[in-house]
Design a protein around this nucleic acid. Structure first.
Length: 276
DNA sequence: CCGCGGGCCTGAGAGC
DNA sequence: TGCTCTCAGGCCCGCG
């Protein structure tokens, strides 16, 4: 997409999580992509008309990139009926010859167009916390964001204002690696004590490591996630706790069993023995 | 202000 | 076979 022009845009369904903006396809057609970026889980496409295309995958969204006449291998996708993929809601035909297909069975994803200048003032975008893989994200920064929070560590890490980009899987996995309980009060990694500082450091190290490992493995394909070439990610095979209720804890020397509990309406997987 | 529960959607899998 | 029920990678909204 970088440097290419939108030649044709197909909006096959206008009702994603929210309605697509007025004249969505027409506003995109003819513009050129001047930059591609991301903030937290928001995908940002800078356009030559000074607008930004904002996209979010929600729970089940994925992008497929095809070049020239390439088509999907039969059976490569879920949601395929008699050769036709269902839930292909938006299709970008680019001047580079690439076709980008947005597929989203549950339609919790969305797309929007806003003026570039307005984006920086958008309260939602402004509220997004630090990028976890950035150099600025360290124990002190995480501790500051957790200070005074009267909520669980699990809920704090899931809060995009505390740190950007962590979802249910990677919060569970980071807490497992850091050997911290998801039920622990978030503020207990932020008090002015050596122990709290140690916990914050361990957690930051774990967050960065799990994200780097997952990215290296192409992400976690539980159901809908695909890489842009259609291939499955592999990180689901490396989960320590997520979706592993009843299995032995993988921590060396730990005799615990992975438990599933519900926090804030979401499943949490963890080991009560080594995660304290 | 904060935290919580419900809602938005479709599909897969379990149990009967 | 087919029904009902639960659960799923996220986020917004209204309520207390």
């Amino acid at each position: 997409m970088q440097g290419a022009r939108f030649e044709t845009v197909e909006a096959r369904r206008a009702d994603l999580r929210w309605p697509l903006p007025k004249n969505f396809a027409k506003r995109l057609e003819g513009t050129t992509v001047t930059g591609l970026g991301r903030r937290g889980k928001y995908l940002l496409v800078d356009l030559s008309n000074r607008e930004v295309l904002i996209m979010h995958l929600g729970m089940s969204g994925s992008f497929r990139v095809m070049r020239d006449g390439e088509s999907a291998t039969p059976g490569q996708f879920h949601h395929e009926r008699s050769g036709q993929r269902t839930h292909d809601h938006v299709i970008f035909h680019m001047s580079s010859g690439a076709t980008i297909v947005f597929n989203d069975p549950r339609r919790f994803g969305f797309m929007n167009l806003v003026a570039r200048a307005a984006l920086d003032d958008d309260p939602r975008v402004r509220a997004i916390g630090p990028e976890p893989l950035g150099n600025a994200f360290d124990a002190a920064m995480l501790a500051a964001a957790c200070a005074g929070k009267k909520t669980s560590l699990k809920a704090a890490l899931s809060d995009q204002k505390v740190v950007a980009g962590l979802g249910n899987i990677y919060v569970c996995e980071a807490l497992s690696r850091a050997r911290l309980s998801p039920k622990r009060l978030a503020s207990t990694i932020a008090t002015r004590s050596g122990a709290a500082n140690e916990r914050a450091k361990r957690l930051v190290t774990a967050i960065k490591a799990v994200l780097n490992d997952a990215i290296g493995a192409g992400g976690s394909s539980l159901r809908d996630h695909r890489r842009t070439d259609g291939a499955l990610g592999d990180f689901q095979h490396n989960f320590r706790v997520y979706d592993r209720e009843g299995e032995p804890c993988p921590t060396p020397g730990c005799r615990g069993t992975i438990k599933r509990i519900v926090q804030n309406g979401r499943s949490t997987f963890f080991c009560r023995v080594c995660q304290t």
